[in-house]
Design a protein around this nucleic acid. Structure first.
Lengths: 331, 331
DNA sequence: CTGAAAGCGCTAACAT
DNA sequence: ATGTTAGCGCTTTCAG
């Protein structure tokens, strides 16, 4: 069934049908009604492919994530989907599986599908440069969460330094004197930013830390478990452990539970992100909430509205969420 | 840049370029090479939209989920995406937000985009009938996880009865005499199946339960928390609580923790799904693992390979995962 | 084995 | 305000 079927049924030309479908004002109300009746009667739905080919507008946005399995990224997808839906756009989702080559393929495939824009959270702060840069030349592109060092493209994320500052301020108030950091490797741009902010701000707040108390690895609970276990074996622990991500912090809590380290009494623990499970684990996790909904909305706004001025960097303010792992009484 | 650009560069006709791009065997090796060189040199990528319009094949599959926020559905998306990717298909994802009307819109929109097939986990065991049936008439469609009562369309999911049987057998071995059930409402088809299996099999295993120990609600941790709290207030608890989903069981564990009910000593708790967090909560949760990877693979197979024979119902066998919440010692 | 040419269903001039 | 028509970029007969 095509626009022709509808036109014949309604007794008008295909142009008129097309106009009604597009919501044009310049159509006689009587004809408009006739077309709408036919459309409903026949159960017609417009062929988006043909429309896209002709108008070169697909109303579809491609999104490439480093790894869908991460709960944080999942939350991000959800918010982006909502923000796009609100503007009548579809989401085409790809998973790079932490692999720069698959990321390149995904980008290429999305371009072939003529997406109107791309939202990307790059796999690697440096290794993703080439493919993402090429994509950015072909279409509007905005980076979300992760970013590429030195790439001239918009970015929306959280203010990592401010988040870490809030964590450390809170720990100082809690009487903490010494701290450690468990986070993501340097290829993870936000992990790197948090790590660097941690080092800088520890000096600022006069908190002591040793290199033994700093461990970088992957974004996973198992890394949090093993890092904590090896830290505990090596000797004394700091008063608090700051984690670069909730999923890592949850691993830390598990090892503490199994090793009889009482949280928060013996050791305070903080996360970053505020994923759903931060409120479901035991003890519940003090963490830094990322403004995901705002991030998604801004990313979509930049993608669809931004003229091609200089590239924008939006570091949104996070919000501290206090829970049991730093001493808030269980409710 | 179009196929024409490449054809001119390689000194052949657009038909030859199209053939090379399609991987046709009937092309002179020399010309093939020339085209491939030009394609690479120019960085050309084929316009999928035009290709789709002409061939009416998009190599895209639409998926509609009742709620992306559910971790179980997220896991499902991931597996489906992988299974599709392995066959060279793209995923177009829509979230129905538990709303039958939005589900209908999503289906309609996906059909307009000429997807080659649909994978749907219906919002409501009865209310989703009309929209899903209409979609199934237009394109190949397979249901995954949730299903619609009486709809003539393929379905792939888990064998709920078998899962519940495994749970109850295990509990009997653990010396449990009385049990309760906290699960999803009847509009959730797998929730309903588990609930019914629970009632039937309790008799079979001679386990006692009272209506006070059965609560049905939504698929969330907060429902698990409140259900447990109100059950505890009402009087004595059973020896074990069987939950229709991990996310509900996690809420149960939280209320137990806060109310001083020791799990598994005072009360054993089981989940269903085996989401990632079942292994990260405290105590770790005994649950029924859904064979998600196989489900996704089979769903995709049915979608792409199944002739239009009678509709298939594939109830895959789940696997019991024993953990601390029913007495396995912490490792 | 290769090329010319006819559309796929729609939109957007342009003409009426 | 409505209709006619020329493509969008590609695939696929059909000739050669």
């Amino acid at each position: 069934m095509t626009i022709r079927t509808v036109a014949d049924d309604a007794g008008v030309s295909i142009a008129t049908v097309s106009r009604v479908l597009a919501g044009a004002e310049t159509v006689d109300p009587a004809l408009r009604r006739a077309v709408q009746v036919s459309v409903r009667k026949l159960g017609y739905s417009r062929n988006t492919i043909a429309s896209a080919l002709r108008s070169s507008k697909t109303r579809t946005i491609g999104m490439v994530l480093p790894e869908i399995a991460n709960p944080f990224n999942t939350d991000l997808v959800q918010e982006v989907e909502d923000a796009l839906h609100a503007r009548g756009f579809q989401l085409l989702l790809c998973n790079a599986h932490q692999d720069v080559e698959r990321e390149r393929e995904a980008l290429q495939s999305l371009l072939g599908q003529q997406v109107d824009g791309l939202i990307v959270s790059p796999v690697d702060a440096t290794g993703s440069m080439e493919a993402v840069q090429a994509a950015a030349r072909a279409r509007p592109l905005v980076q979300v969460d992760q970013r590429i060092e030195g790439l001239d493209a918009d970015w929306v994320g959280v203010d990592d330094e401010r988040g870490i500052r809030q964590v450390l301020e809170h720990l100082v108030e809690q009487g903490v004197k010494s701290v450690g950091f468990i986070g993501a490797r340097e290829t993870d741009s936000s992990g790197a930013a948090r790590h660097q902010a941690f080092r800088r701000l520890c000096r600022h707040f006069d908190l002591s830390f040793s290199e033994n108390w700093i461990m970088l690895g992957e974004y996973s609970a198992s890394f949090g478990r093993s890092a904590t276990a090896s830290m505990a074996e090596q000797g004394t622990l700091p008063d608090a452990l700051v984690c670069g991500a909730d999923i890592i912090a949850i691993g830390v809590l598990q090892t503490c539970h199994r090793s009889g380290i009482a949280v928060p009494k013996d050791l305070q623990v903080t996360g970053f992100d505020d994923i759903e499970f931060a409120d479901l684990c035991t003890p519940r996790l003090t963490t830094v909430r990322q403004p995901l909904e705002a991030m998604a909305r801004q990313a979509v706004r930049l993608l669809l509205e931004d003229g091609d001025e200089a590239s924008v960097r939006l570091a949104l303010a996070p919000e501290m969420t206090l829970r049991e792992s730093t001493g808030k009484p269980a409710s």
